[in-house]
Write a protein that binds this DNA or RNA. Structure first.
Lengths: 236, 236
DNA sequence: ACCTGAACACCGTTCAAGT
DNA sequence: ACCTGAACACCGTTCAAGT
């Protein structure tokens, strides 16, 4: 009887409720601290109860990615391919950035879920509708890589660095060993002229690279690039 | 006495020997299976013996990255910035690809080790020596991201797929749900004309994107791009 | 048939006891 | 002072026993 009351007090478990709780918990305690056991505790159930809704932890992580990808805005209709792709990718970026663990988890997945596949399909469709050949679209998708979902692996986190400890990474006692790194780090930190007040503006960096790529794609498209005839010269 | 004989039989432990054994073991059994305990067993020592040479597992992984980065060829002297950077990055790619776990581990590191910093310093130096401003070099480095070390996060592994199971990912029963993904996958698999015999040629894709970026960098450099004056127009 | 407590086979790392 | 066995505090998941 007591158990039944408990069960009624809490909404019954469902895959959706498990996934949303996992997302919220990861937002709160970080992805490396998220465990099946802690998630179960958070939901007030025994660990094994989760396994009726997700087959294992990998499937839980897949589901969490789906929740985040579901937060990406739908495509804006009636714009040219370039701004449509740009808008969609920046929306994906907003969704991914809202969950600090999301990029890392996306990268760890072996295979795309149907939800991720649907997103990719819509991006591919924008290029095809914009007149890109299947060939060029293929290579363009590879060149975008994870940038398609709004993030790229920076080699390390040189950025927000309100944390003074981060500065120490680039400027240790032996700064002289890395003159170019030091020069660059100094400029980024002190140059008031530049876009970067102090530290880097990640959003600026992202858009800089994205636009560089989109401009490159446009150029290749206009000159009739194909993988067997990269220069686009007429052969007939 | 017996223990001493054992100790003499095996070369004495050193940080270097620990790291090389870890690299070899990860090559063999995969990074997710690599544990301190297994590494110790492989070296014929008790797990705690490792902790005199590496502070913890994170530091072990840092050291393993250093071993791989140490396998990158030194820069070729006397070439223009573009081919120097291109050659160096493709060499980094060869080193990283020789260890299937390397890209993933590099991505997982919070901060660059001095070895990685030295590599980055040399790449930054190539742009600066080639006449790039500190400002442009900064953004260019961000645009390269992990590509600087020869890898990018593909959104998933659509490629080698000698494994027929991989095909099933893109062409499940409900292929019709993802028309553009399906079209692209079909073209990649069947088109004998294209560079891709069957599946993708990762090396081609990497160089495609790298050259697209390098061409873009060159264009921005030539037109005098700055972050406050992207068009490069003369203002004085 | 459903649910779940205990157990299994691992982890990385601490710590105190041994030499 | 050095080395190391045992222990701690976790994991994800299996499985058999309970209802």
């Amino acid at each position: 009887m007591a158990q039944q009351t408990e069960a009624v007090r809490r909404a019954p478990l469902s895959r959706d409720r498990v996934l949303r709780a996992a997302v919220a918990l990861a937002d709160e305690i970080g992805i490396e601290a998220l465990s099946m056991r802690k998630l179960a505790q958070e939901l007030g159930v025994v660990p094994m109860a989760l396994y009726k809704h997700v087959a294992n932890k990998d499937q839980l992580l897949d589901g969490m990615v789906d929740v985040v990808v579901g937060e990406i805005d739908p495509p804006a209709p009636g714009s040219d391919w370039k701004s449509a792709v740009r808008q969609r990718i920046l929306s994906a970026r907003r969704a991914l950035l809202a969950h600090s663990w999301a990029a890392q988890v996306v990268q760890s997945r072996a295979r795309p879920t149907p939800t991720v596949l649907a997103y990719m399909d819509s991006v591919i469709g924008m290029f095809r509708t914009g007149g890109f050949s299947v060939d060029l679209t293929h290579h363009v998708m590879h060149a975008l890589g994870s940038r398609m979902l709004g993030f790229t692996q920076e080699l390390f986190d040189a950025s927000p660095s309100l944390d003074p400890e981060a500065q120490a990474v680039v400027v240790p006692a032996d700064a002289g060993k890395f003159p170019y790194v030091t020069e660059l780090a100094m400029a980024v930190t002190h140059d008031e002229e530049s876009v970067v007040g102090q530290g880097c503006d990640d959003q600026f960096e992202f858009e800089f690279a994205l636009d560089l790529l989109l401009d490159g794609f446009e150029r290749l498209h206009q000159q009739g690039w194909t993988s067997t005839n990269p220069s686009g010269e007429k052969t007939a």
